[in-house]
Write a protein that binds this DNA or RNA. Structure first.
Lengths: 344, 344
DNA sequence: TGCGCTTGCTGAACCGGATAAGTATCGAGA
DNA sequence: TCTCGATACTTATCCGGTTCAGCAAGCGCA
């Protein structure tokens, strides 16, 4: 009942282990007829290469690592991750690479996990997500010599290969769109302030609004709960915003509900824009105007770059297509007339 | 720049490879002082055991597999999976087991993936989810000799170890609750009819309603889109239901929106109940009455059983705590007065 | 006829650990 | 003093592949 090895194949074929190895790997060194015979026997007795034995000879582990440190509750709710993983997967499974997944409590633990995986020869490379300001991970990865792709802006990727999508453009596009609709008081319910892309979006938002609209940014932890709380606070202010841009879809949905609970009409009294366009956005009423991007493609791209990095090539950094504004029912001109400049 | 091996440690310590192995594994055969010296050197030069070399000696791969075949779009949205995975993870990472994840297109591909992983010695066991009626996987796993835990009802688990939560009780509890509120026309928007738990819930729902309420069950694919469509169809019927029970939270949210779009008041005109209680349920207005269960604990339990199975023990089947009804704002007595029997 | 080259294969070393078997050293007991 | 037995190691082998050196046979060619 033991797993068959090449020695078993060799015995049955009446050749040496070496010949079997050559035959099974499609390398020269055996005749076509012997090769066919060996392959047939291997097939028949159900031989599979032992990944351990292969790895021992310096071959690749044929797996890449993804350790994630986010609180479990955000992970479960935000569609972003599963879509990203499913994109990564699609690329990996095509080449029979596996994905090693682990949740970490913090960056130190995450680094420890990678150190172990890499040290033990379990992974060939890693994908780094949720880039922080002053993130210790790029340097740690580099010192380990662990090939890695960073999903995040090059400015924070250090020596690692970045795969990112523009944050600046979509923010400006959104603000322009809201301005064009006539909004002059715009709020942004942002994610964790320590994340690089939050900082980039914050800056873009500020610059886009500066001088043309009143604006405010509130930071949250991405949960619907905090999104709702931030929304209530914003909407109960005397000069409440007429539009709110949310940094993820779950907060946008929560914000929408919070507004409706306050008897405000969306989009009449308040326009809502979500960043990232999961099915969730189209399921609520009104459907949410959202910044859409193909997250699965994003993940697939990262996986592709990582694999080429692992195989010794030197793929350049890659900027994924930026998110595009998909207007839906949650945005409209503000009902409350504002003093609009003649040239506006 | 190569990874240090026990040979390197042995050389520096001035002892043999064997002694180092004994020392590092905490086995007798070396003196305390030598052991300490070896451990110090190993630590200093950053030695890690090669998982490949260990696995080659018949040791465990220290990884378990999880191949999932669901359409990516459902995966991304439904919180269930990420919560389950995060629960599985929490248990695995405590014992430094890794999780190998892969998405499959269908059951055949899923079985092929496991066959490969198991054949290659990459995994010690597997977790099987989304049990289907006449599922080919339990038999396939058993014939492979792959230790596995099935997340699903024992009736469908075949020879594998089941970990499940009761479907029957929660369905009946929900129906009783709705009946007590005065509902007499209840609909159920169910998931895929081929899933074992859908069948179980269908049956329980039918039996609970039989003779005491009008009822109807509609099957969907779990997406919000189909949930909304089913809801619209149900609500546009002349004798529309006064309560709808959904098989997951995303469909419940979609159904809620669809109802509100039809200018129906929830819970006045329609009561809504969701199965599985993600943060999503509390984020919408009104917050959804839901069947709550600790999905992460569910996953952790499955992982725990699998690990004990892998280590040669024989843990019994485990029934997780059943989902419990958490009433919230989406359920109330039906506003439209119905002819309620005097004894009702 | 002899030389060199290619083809097709064998045998052995090797990867990094685990482990069984063997050996040198030392203290205790008879 | 000799033996017994534990202690503290060393040596050798094994796991399942890969790979390199070697070698015999067959072929072309001068």
């Amino acid at each position: 009942m033991k797993r068959p090895t090449i020695a078993d194949v060799a015995r049955q074929a009446g050749v040496s282990k070496g010949a079997v190895s050559y035959a099974l790997n499609g390398r020269p060194g055996v005749s076509a007829s012997t090769r066919a015979r060996i392959l047939a026997i291997a097939e028949e007795i159900g031989w599979r290469p032992s990944s351990a034995a292969r790895a021992l000879n310096g071959a690749h582990a044929r797996a890449v690592g993804l350790a994630v440190c986010r609180p479990a509750r955000t992970l479960g709710v935000e569609p972003f991750f599963m879509e990203l993983i499913s994109g990564i997967e699609s690329e990996l499974s095509d080449r029979s690479y596996a994905l090693m997944l682990q949740m970490a409590a913090d960056h130190d633990q995450e680094i420890a996990i990678y150190r172990r995986w890499w040290g033990e020869g379990r992974i060939d490379g890693a994908i780094l997500v949720d880039l922080h300001v002053d993130d210790p991970r790029p340097a740690a990865f580099a010192s380990l010599g662990l090939p890695a792709v960073v999903i995040g802006h090059p400015s924070g990727a250090g020596p690692l290969l970045p795969v990112w999508s523009d944050d600046d453009g979509p923010v400006r596009e959104t603000v322009r769109y809201l301005l064009a609709l006539g909004h002059r008081r715009i709020a942004r319910v942002a994610g964790l302030p320590r994340l690089v892309h939050t900082v980039l979006r914050d800056r873009a938002f500020t610059e886009a609004c500066e001088g043309v609209a009143e604006y405010v940014t509130v930071h949250t932890d991405y949960t619907g709960e905090e999104g709702a709380r931030a929304t209530r606070r914003l909407l109960s202010s005397p000069d409440r915003p007429t539009a709110i841009v949310y940094d993820n879809d779950i907060m946008a949905v929560a914000g929408l509900s919070a507004a409706q609970e306050l008897r405000l009409d969306v989009p009449g009294d308040l326009s809502v824009v979500a960043w990232d366009d999961s099915p969730l956005c189209q399921v609520v009423r009104p459907p949410l105007t959202a910044l859409s991007r193909d997250i699965a493609a994003y993940g697939a791209q990262a996986a592709r770059r990582l694999l080429s990095l692992v195989s010794g090539e030197d793929p350049g950094p890659h900027e994924e297509e930026a998110a595009r504004l998909t207007p839906r029912g949650s945005t409209a001109p503000p009902r409350v007339r504002e003093r609009v400049p003649a040239d506006g």
